[in-house]
Computed example of a mutant assay.
Amino acid sequence: MSAVERLLSEDAPRADAQRNVRRLVVAAREAVADVGVGVTAHEIARRAGVGIGTFYRRVPSREALLQAVVEDTIYEIVGLARQALQDPDPWHGFCSFAAEFVQLRAMSCGINEALGTDCALTLDQPLADLREQIRLLVERCQQAGAVRGDVPWQDVPFALTSVMTGNRTIGLPAADDQWRRNLRIVLAGLRATTA
């Protein structure tokens, strides 16, 4: 059962209360993406179209809601990695995962914070699971001769994260698909020359 499902099932509230919890979860996901994990309960309630009293009646705390939302999102990334491991072509699977990983980080301020900094949420287990899946992906590619053998798997998350960019650098505007262009360069650098 996911963290959000556990939150939804607490005390099995009435149907209208369940709807409010779902609205709060959707609003929290959007707010985490737009604002980050520092988003306030008032902002989440406003986005959900409910009052702050309803917020605190329906969820244990702002932190519990954010924990559930961010944890579930990280487990979605873990699921993407597991799908990539099922691809018969290790390199294709890795590239597909890399694009989805970077896109999610680029689109969600809060997920970028949670994956990149010490945030106030307790994410030890989801992050450990994600690290393990990335290790498996990289090692599978290395065993297939698709990724350079001299690249430790621990360097790969940093390399993937490095493709995200700001809106400008040295006076040049970033293209709309700048992260995709950067990702192509990084993947070319990771690719084994014999592949």
Results as ranks from 00 to 15, higher is better:
residue 4 V to R: 00
residue 168 R to T: 11
residue 141 C to D: 02
residue 35 V to Y: 10
residue 181 R to E: 10
residue 107 M to T: 14
residue 178 Q to T: 09
residue 38 G to M: 03
residue 6 R to I: 08
residue 173 P to L: 05
residue 38 G to A: 05
residue 69 V to W: 03
residue 51 G to Q: 00
residue 150 D to G: 09
residue 43 E to D: 08
residue 178 Q to L: 10
residue 73 T to Q: 15
residue 68 A to T: 07
residue 170 I to M: 12
residue 9 S to K: 09
residue 59 V to L: 00
residue 164 M to E: 02
residue 56 Y to F: 14
residue 193 T to C: 04
residue 35 V to A: 05
residue 182 N to I: 06
residue 20 N to M: 13
residue 140 R to W: 05
residue 139 E to D: 10
residue 6 R to C: 01
residue 160 L to W: 13
residue 97 F to D: 00
residue 24 L to D: 05
residue 148 R to M: 08
residue 74 I to E: 07
residue 189 G to M: 09
residue 152 P to I: 11
residue 92 H to T: 14
residue 159 A to P: 09
residue 162 S to R: 08
residue 193 T to A: 12
residue 8 L to P: 04
residue 37 V to A: 00
residue 160 L to M: 11
residue 136 L to Y: 13
residue 59 V to Q: 00
residue 195 A to R: 15
residue 61 S to E: 00
residue 60 P to F: 02
residue 3 A to F: 12
residue 45 A to F: 10
residue 42 H to L: 13
residue 23 R to H: 08
residue 93 G to I: 09
residue 166 G to K: 09
residue 133 Q to N: 04
residue 27 A to V: 11
residue 59 V to D: 01
residue 173 P to G: 00
residue 103 Q to C: 11
residue 190 L to Q: 01
residue 166 G to C: 06
residue 28 A to T: 13
residue 40 T to A: 05
residue 60 P to N: 01
residue 67 Q to D: 00
residue 145 G to C: 09
residue 105 R to F: 14
residue 86 Q to I: 10
residue 83 Q to M: 12
residue 35 V to S: 07
residue 24 L to P: 11
residue 3 A to C: 03
residue 178 Q to E: 08
residue 109 C to I: 15
residue 43 E to A: 12
residue 84 A to M: 03
residue 31 A to V: 11
residue 127 L to T: 05
residue 72 D to T: 12
residue 93 G to C: 04
residue 173 P to I: 02
residue 57 R to Y: 08
residue 91 W to A: 10
residue 189 G to L: 06
residue 117 T to R: 08
residue 16 D to I: 15
residue 127 L to Q: 08
residue 68 A to I: 09
residue 178 Q to K: 09
residue 142 Q to K: 10
residue 164 M to K: 08
residue 135 R to L: 11
residue 62 R to D: 00
residue 194 T to V: 14
residue 74 I to L: 15
residue 161 T to G: 14
residue 143 Q to V: 15
residue 78 V to P: 10
residue 94 F to P: 05
residue 9 S to I: 08
residue 90 P to C: 01
residue 102 V to S: 06
residue 158 F to D: 09
residue 113 E to L: 07
residue 37 V to R: 01
residue 69 V to R: 03
residue 48 A to I: 07
residue 47 R to K: 05
residue 130 L to W: 05
residue 112 N to D: 08
residue 187 L to M: 09
residue 185 I to K: 02
residue 49 G to P: 02
residue 180 R to C: 06
residue 2 S to C: 04
residue 142 Q to V: 10
residue 87 D to P: 06
residue 7 L to Q: 00
residue 113 E to G: 00
residue 66 L to Y: 03
residue 134 I to C: 06
residue 178 Q to R: 11
residue 137 L to P: 02
residue 137 L to V: 13
residue 111 I to H: 02
residue 185 I to C: 07
residue 71 E to V: 12
residue 54 T to R: 01
residue 91 W to E: 09
residue 141 C to Y: 07
residue 50 V to C: 02
residue 103 Q to H: 14
residue 96 S to T: 15
residue 181 R to M: 15
residue 78 V to G: 07
residue 96 S to F: 13
residue 30 E to I: 15
residue 12 A to G: 05
